[in-house]
Design a protein around this nucleic acid. Structure first.
Lengths: 168, 168
DNA sequence: CCAGTATGAATGAACG
DNA sequence: CGTTCATTCATACTGG
């Protein structure tokens, strides 16, 4: 059994220290000396190398950005003046983990899976935030009206609040 | 420490769309904008988040490569069921460790300074190569004064040195 | 129910 | 720095 654990697995203490530095202390891009200092402390807890600390900050920074991207997801204003053409029943148990034992599949009311040629939407990378008028609703019948307009939605989605996305 | 991390379970429609994109359309590494668009579309079918789409492509890519990579590899199950004991890497004596692939920044000569200017942390005499629980005391409730009184002098010392010196 | 498996999620490491 | 790879963990699902 050749389980080579090549990856550094930080201990909880180390993570705590790193997060303390990153968030509370605002250390986001430590200099080499700073990294070394941190490294010297963290190495006490477990085998750790200089680059581990460095990478951690790099990743943490990158992840913050990613989180921001996902957080700023434009909520599709599907709640318009009425119902959007079809009956989209996306009432999923979000964070409810009571899935065990129960069978949830195809929670949609309509079970018309006969979609032969699913209406793929074009991914023209030409226009990013332009208006991608996906006319996919027409062919499929996936509840119709799946046009998506990237508009900032000031209105929250009603009761559902924003959940933590990439948080631990 | 079980976080009830509910997993996103894609519907058949979503999977169909994703696979269509991945295989037929050749979308293997969509950009952020593309991911967002896909996300907005898939959002109609069920509760879904940005990261779900992102992760799907990442995993799909990895899975593809996994299948291919196992050309002459034995079919030893990489996953032992259960047994998720906290694992910490205690690979001591890393002399001539596998640096394959090109490892950057590897300095092991000066870490003998040890912790002498760090009177901050409690001393775990257990040492790392002992074999201890991952979280050791920390996990269960470390009321034993395990504080993180970081006194790092992280003040701005100016930018001493560029961080690119370890650029391979 | 329990074990095994498939796959989503997380993150360290690295590339360009 | 943004993106991607690689590895591992966690959880939904499936069969017995």
């Amino acid at each position: 059994m050749l389980c080579r654990r090549s990856k550094w697995t930080p201990t909880t203490d180390q993570i705590r220290i790193l997060k303390e530095l990153f968030y509370n202390k605002g250390v986001r891009s430590p200099t080499v000396e700073q990294v070394q200092r941190i490294y010297l402390q963290l190495k006490w807890y477990s085998k750790i190398e200089f680059k581990n600390v460095y990478f951690w900050f790099v990743n943490q920074r990158a992840r913050e950005k990613q989180k921001k991207t996902s957080t700023s997801d434009v909520h599709v204003p599907m709640q318009r003046s009425g119902l959007v053409g079809g009956s989209i029943n996306l009432n999923f148990g979000s964070t409810s983990s009571a899935d065990v034992g129960g069978s949830i599949m195809e929670q949609r009311g309509e079970d018309h899976q006969e979609v032969k040629t699913l209406p793929l939407f074009p991914i023209h990378s030409e226009d990013i935030f332009g208006n991608m008028k996906t006319t996919s609703d027409g062919g499929g019948g996936h509840g119709g009206g799946s046009y998506i307009s990237l508009e900032l939605s000031l209105s929250c989605e009603g009761k559902a609040g924003n959940k933590n996305f990439w948080s631990r």
